[in-house]
Design a protein around this nucleic acid. Structure first.
Length: 491
RNA sequence: GCUCCUGUGGUGUAGUCCGGCUAAGCAUACUGCCCUCUCAAGGCAGUGAUCCCGGGUUCAAAUCCCGGCGGGAGCACCA
């Protein structure tokens, strides 16, 4: 009898065929937009596996479509990865390997595995649907050579493409003579006009993964059908084959990640930019107060699966809360302020701890008996009620209404009476708090996705650095975004 | 339409390859209690899944086989 090792697993599942010290993974984003939570998932998985096996991670910009790529996005992606704490061992661009790619294309032409097709787009697409080959497919080596050369000068974009001689009757539509290279006359962000014949995704990824020494390549599930092409190409080229694995893409409900959806929102001013806290972009999440360690834990908690799911944002928040709680300074904030005067106050200053458990220093607050308290707290208070001003003293309400009054009854903490926060009227700080809600409800833009609330907080707020996380007591965690603005992170 | 992938509590997953040790672990959400000068964090407890359905194989199935059904994706000279 063989006893199977069926113990609990932590982290990602083991990789098939992975050897310690011999794993190379890669993160291949196209520099065509700002990085988002989907990039985070991919890059974290790539890095974690490299780490797990003492291997390496390559950051490879898949920049083979000059129509869409821009220099600023290369930078933005690097910034995003730095922020996430994803460290790569090597950085490169697919576009730097154009000569190799051309060489491989030549090999395929010479071997007759590809042909240059000059049919128009509609015909090609129709033929693929109807599984019929076009006349270009029958072209001989001379014709293909001649046409291939013409792709570099005479042909205009769209007039000729290199197609793989696949199987026009394959059930996998990807295999019905897919495009491998095409002409694009746009200036490339790095190489400008040096090249105009560009490989498409399938061709570039196969070659790059192979020559980069990638042992395990991961991509999202929608590429699944392309794996057959990937392996077939490497076969025909006689190149080493990495192991290709797919995982489900990560997106939150009501927080779309696609540029097609996000871009118009930015352009129409419905969101403030790609760093709007409502967006699932890395910049947006950062501004919202989500920390990278939380994203990593969250991503790892999702596992490596192909099932299509929409994990709740709440789970991310929960990871985040546990991380920021011990380092978030506590401050008082008041919404819908109501004046409260304590008639027999005799304190002029009080010192309050910045954190209930951890030593984060103390702050001094000047007091003269005049306070603001939250409107929502006043509603339940009646004359004669006793309430504790947190960290200060207990008072008995002697007058209600817009100008409340009370008198100190006791300074000792009493567990059984309500406790409310307050802000001294001696030096209040007005801020606005941005509260995000889901961007889309049933594919409809949520016009109420951003709530701006006016609030009054302590003077100490001004002394904090922009970017710090604050827990406004009895309200929630917020990130200081500027001197007069805080962004609500979560409860 | 065709093809591929996928289906474990409200949610996300572990376990499924190599059937028993688990009538199902963890996290999140929710509820209650404890702690606490917060409605946070922490501690404890609880609610909640006949593992999509129906057959079959077997002493034994979430796990293997067959047949359904649901969900998603792909069908670009984009990645």
């Amino acid at each position: 009898m063989i006893v199977k090792p069926k113990q609990e697993r932590t982290g990602l599942p083991p990789l098939e065929g992975a050897e310690q010290g011999h794993v190379i993974t890669r993160f291949p984003p196209e520099p065509n937009g700002y990085p988002h939570i989907g990039h985070a998932k991919a890059s974290i998985i790539d890095e974690e596996y490299a780490k797990m096996y003492g291997g390496k991670l390559i950051l490879r910009f898949d920049d083979t479509n000059p129509e869409k790529e821009r220099l600023e996005y290369y930078a933005a992606i690097k910034v995003g990865l730095d922020w996430l704490g994803v460290k790569y061992d090597l950085i490169k661009n697919t576009s730097d390997d154009m000569e190799i790619i051309y060489k491989k294309a030549r090999e395929l032409i010479d071997a007759g595995y590809v042909y240059v097709c000059t049919c128009d787009k509609e015909t090609i697409s129709k033929n693929r649907r109807e599984m019929i080959p076009c006349k270009c497919r029958a072209g001989n080596l001379d014709q293909n050579n001649m046409r291939w050369n013409k792709m570099f000068d005479k042909f205009k974009p769209g007039e000729a493409i290199v197609r793989f001689r696949g199987d026009m009757s394959s059930e996998n539509t990807v295999m019905r003579d897919p495009t491998l290279l095409r002409i694009i006359d746009e200036s490339h962000p790095i190489h400008k006009n040096k090249y105009r014949v560009w490989p498409n995704y399938d061709f570039a990824v196969a070659i790059e993964d192979s020559i980069d020494g990638i042992t395990h390549a991961f991509r999202t599930k929608e590429y699944e059908l392309r794996t057959e092409l990937y392996y077939t190409l490497l076969d025909k080229l006689g190149m080493r084959k990495p192991k290709m694995l797919e995982f489900s893409r990560l997106e939150f409900e009501g927080m779309p990640v696609s540029k097609r959806v996000l871009k118009p929102l930015v352009e129409e001013g419905k969101v403030s930019g790609f760093d709007d806290p409502r967006l699932p972009t890395l910049e947006g999440l950062r501004r919202r107060g989500i920390v990278p360690e939380a994203i990593r834990k969250f991503v790892l908690s999702l596992g490596f699966t192909k099932s299509d799911t929409m994990p709740p944002f709440e789970t991310l928040e929960s990871f985040n809360r546990k991380i920021i709680d011990p380092v978030s300074i506590r401050l008082f904030i008041v919404f819908d302020p109501v004046k409260l005067t304590v008639i027999n106050n005799n304190l002029t200053e009080i010192e309050i701890s910045n954190h209930p458990q951890n030593d984060m220093g103390k702050r001094r607050i000047k007091i003269d008996g005049n306070f603001y308290i939250s409107g929502s707290d006043t509603r339940t208070l009646k004359i004669g009620d006793e309430v504790r001003l947190l960290e200060l003293y207990n008072i008995r309400i002697t007058k209600t209404g817009p100008e409340m009054e009370g008198e100190v009854t006791d300074t000792n903490y009493k567990p059984d009476i309500p406790k409310i926060q307050w802000v001294s009227r001696k030096n209040p700080v007005n801020i606005e708090v941005l509260i995000s809600d889901v961007l889309f409800i049933n594919d409809q833009f949520n016009e109420n996705s951003l709530e701006v609330k006016q609030a009054i907080t302590e003077q100490h707020y001004l002394e904090l650095n922009v970017g710090v996380e604050i827990q406004f007591v009895r309200f929630g965690y917020c990130r200081k975004d500027s001197a007069n603005q805080a962004i609500y992170t979560h409860k």
